[in-house]
Design a binder for these strands. Structure first.
Lengths: 335, 335
DNA sequence: TTGAAAGCGCTAACAC
DNA sequence: GTGTTAGCGCTTTCAA
């Protein structure tokens, strides 16, 4: 019973190549791995045999034996279809690929249970490292991985765990956005926010409060709508805000999806409120939407570089990188 | 020298768990895999030992031995950051995950060499199947995989290979788009197209020619600009077209990226030409852009379902699914 | 109910 | 330059 797996799939093993070429297993291995100390004649025989049989090395077996762990890195995000996250993935992919690593992606839909089972699954699959946009409320469950698998948190910090983290300066960004609206003379500013439990939302909310407080405005609660995690909900929340009496004269939407949703609610208004959105997005320039810009590719890149460094033996304490945001005025925030 | 890999990483092996629990390797394996014929008492001892040691099963080793091949499926696309492809990825991910499979993604940047080396790498890693948006001009190199690894082509058909394929009806979609503009009274219609070598571009080009020919218009070559594969190039191509004398009164942009690029060129025009774009995109509704809509998630879903069926033993001949498009009038195509 | 031995496909030692 | 042996971490006979 030879080669239960590969052979069953009609795939030749190294042993068969060796037999076909009339050499030992080890010699075939040497040739196919480009190791020295083989005559060109034998090498050629082996290569021919491999081609004839359509041989393809089994890296999994190789890695198991050679003690190298796999060359894949897991990326767990909430939704691959959201450009913010797919751009993170892209940024990470570039760096990882350059380091000979492969990206395994998985979406959680903001579900903590899903996050845990995905982490579990990827660790069992022995990914070399994990990039994680967390959804869980606690990451103590990852404590046992310390010193085993590098984990880098993205966009949101870990809870109950000391780990490398790449964040955006949410609070300062939100504060700048709202300050910008206040500077434009607005006083009744509405907020369309993400799920209250997300740290990004809470930080942006805090930045909003900071700016309002700086301006001496205290009664803004009625203009706040949180827990919009999809565009349709954001559209409804926005419509609700506009129906408040008196209505807000400006809006702050706390992420790309909510900005899109709000824009739909404003589309048919003759005199839309001013708008600043957190997160830049495609065509915001054409639409003339003022945003608090950030660079997801950059986040992915930095996180991946942290991973590569850790894998290369960097044992310094966990670092947190906080990326600055940049207010990009494009018209909607200046009306 | 025990456990070169996992042990080096400080990770306990099943053998260590067994030793800790005072049972044999096999018994520990049985317990941790939920196999029957173990007393609850021994089972409990094993589980405690596993918890104490922080044991995590090594699926790679398991799969190697048990003859099961890996549970990952490779997805090779041109650019993960392009929403069209990330939505494909998302659609595929859902189906695969439900089937217990994991998605490994990689971007080619439209480079044929990159495609080949990624395919090679993923096959060596023994992915169970491959989803491929091809960039190469020839796929004969995949012929040897017949009967070994299911391959499903997405968005573009294979060349020199018989394989499952999921396409969009590019020609009919383009024809409908251009017919729509013609019906609006336009005669000088410009086209901003993708790389000429891409089948999608050629098909959409053919649909354009069909419609023009139907309308008895033959001199349209001067209004065609191909080889725009990024938004900036599309913006330039569009500006060039508008500078032709007499300028086109309408534009057909052949994909989402080119549509975005064209919109930038039109942004500051007082009297912009009509526009229909191939591919729907986020906020096209808010911008009022008429498009030939398609559904990338659906493509990913169908392709993944084909993969799942093949893995379940479907040996019927290769199928090609061609998805219809739908013209969505939103204003820009009707002016 | 439990365990010993064999072996997945490959590479690292160490011989020859 | 080439081959033999052992063994990665696990599961699968098959026997006890």
């Amino acid at each position: 019973m030879d080669g239960a797996r590969d052979v069953a799939a009609g795939r030749p093993t190294l042993r068969q190549v060796a037999a076909e070429a009339g050499v030992s297993l080890k010699t075939a291995s040497r040739v196919l791995n480009g190791h020295p100390h083989v005559t060109e004649a034998t090498a050629a025989r082996v290569r021919q045999a491999a081609d004839r049989l359509g041989f393809r090395l089994n890296r999994i077996a190789r890695e198991l034996r050679s003690g190298a762990t796999s060359t894949s890195v897991g990326l767990i995000i909430s939704d691959l279809a959201n450009p913010f996250y797919s751009r993170i993935a892209r940024g990470a992919e570039r760096v990882l690929r350059a380091g000979g690593l492969q990206l395994v992606t998985a979406s959680t839909d903001e579900d903590a249970e899903q996050e845990r089972s995905l982490v579990e699954e990827l660790l069992e699959r022995r990914v070399r490292a994990l990039l994680l946009v967390p959804s869980a409320a606690d990451h103590g469950y990852l404590a046992a991985e310390r010193g085993r698998t590098p984990v880098v948190f993205l966009d949101r910090p870990p809870v109950n765990l000391d780990a490398d983290t790449v964040l955006v300066d949410n609070r300062a960004g939100a504060r700048a956005a709202v300050a910008h609206l206040l500077a434009g003379g607005h006083r009744r500013i509405g907020l369309v926010g993400d799920l209250s439990r997300l740290s990004t939302h809470r930080e942006r909310m805090a930045g909003f409060a900071d700016a309002m407080s700086d301006a001496g405005i205290t009664f803004w609660q009625r203009y706040v709508r949180a827990d919009s995690h999809d565009a349709a909900t954001a559209t409804r929340s926005t419509a609700e805000l506009l129906a408040v009496d008196p209505p807000p004269t400006a809006l702050f939407t706390t992420n790309n999806v909510n900005t899109a949703g709000a824009l739909r609610a404003l589309a048919d208004r003759a005199d839309p409120p001013a708008l600043v959105g957190f997160d830049d997005f495609d065509l915001a320039d054409v639409l003339g939407i003022t945003v608090v810009g950030n660079e997801p590719e950059e986040m992915g890149r930095i996180a991946a570089e942290m991973v590569v460094a850790r894998l290369a033996g960097d044992h310094t304490p966990a670092r947190t990188v906080v990326l600055p945001t940049k207010l990009v005025p494009r018209g909607s925030g200046e009306r």
